[in-house]
Design a binder for these strands. Structure first.
Length: 262
DNA sequence: ATGGCAAATTGAATTTGA
């Protein structure tokens, strides 16, 4: 059986609804993992998805910001919101479906200053990563996939300039170290970088502050799909749908997609 | 440590993102 899973930080599901529906019609993912839905559960636009055959909604929204969702055609066997810490505030939702555990994360961005002593947001980011490291040690990573906006570009060539971004939140040494520790203790596999490498585009995010994101291509790879060792052995393919960044009123993130033959 | 922006909330200004 072949399943398709798509992960996208949409920066408001209500603003991006038409674009998300278009991507669903075009690529027909079985499972849609969204981050930054920015909507409470009661206001999630379910009807439009129902028309496309997506009838199950696993939502963890809060007012105004954050918020994650998993949307499926088939009903999940179970779903859960992890007790990662009090910091799991619309930042994680997990399901089990087709025998696969899927967790959708929105790791905190971390604010401006990469110093946990003076910037609480940065401390929260590192604490969230520590919680994910502990969680990875506890679970049995079999038939497991985790995805989402991790807000960290782990490798030097995951950003447009390692030199210029090495002290910028999302690419500092300590964040990269924590993320790679998380990867290592869970025996996770970075499914996207296993298949897509420079000079092909690996970026999934481009700042809104650039007038034309294509001109100097100052992007970062902040969004990820990680899979357990057993899934790594299956046939799978990855696509970064960077065309969505060229649409009018785009999200600053683009979708990433995995097609896996179970 | 700031920016060239965007979205949500509240009601022109602030917070958040990264």
């Amino acid at each position: 059986m072949i399943i398709k899973i798509l992960s996208w930080n949409v920066n408001s599901i209500r603003t991006r609804l038409e674009q998300v529906l278009n991507v669903c019609q075009k690529y027909k993912p079985d499972i849609i993992c969204l981050q930054e839905t920015k909507v409470i559960n009661d206001s999630f636009p379910q009807n439009e998805f129902l028309k496309l055959g997506y009838s199950h909604f696993y939502l963890h929204g809060i007012p105004s910001y954050n918020g994650v969702a998993i949307i499926t055609q088939q009903e999940a066997e179970s779903f859960d919101i992890l007790d990662l810490s009090q910091l799991n505030n619309g930042r994680q939702i997990g399901i089990k479906i087709f025998g696969i555990h899927i967790h959708n994360f929105y790791i905190p961005s971390g604010g401006d200053v990469p110093d946990e002593k003076i910037n609480l947001k940065f401390k929260n980011k590192l604490d969230f990563l520590k919680a994910l490291i502990s969680w990875s040690k506890k679970i049995t990573p079999k038939n497991f996939l985790i995805c989402g906006d991790f807000n960290i570009a782990p490798f030097e060539d995951d950003v447009w300039s390692h030199k210029q971004l090495k002290d910028v939140v999302s690419h500092t040494d300590i964040e990269r170290k924590y993320l790679l520790k998380f990867l290592e203790v869970g025996n996770w596999n970075d499914a996207v970088r296993a298949q897509i490498n420079p000079p092909e585009n690996v970026f999934t995010w481009w700042s809104y502050r650039s007038k034309d994101f294509k001109i100097n291509n100052r992007g970062r790879r902040l969004d990820h799909i990680w899979i357990s060792n057993d899934l790594k052995k299956k046939n799978y393919s990855i696509k970064i749908l960077d065309y969505t960044r060229t649409l009018s009123r785009p999200s600053d993130h683009v979708p990433i997609k995995i097609k896996i033959n179970l």
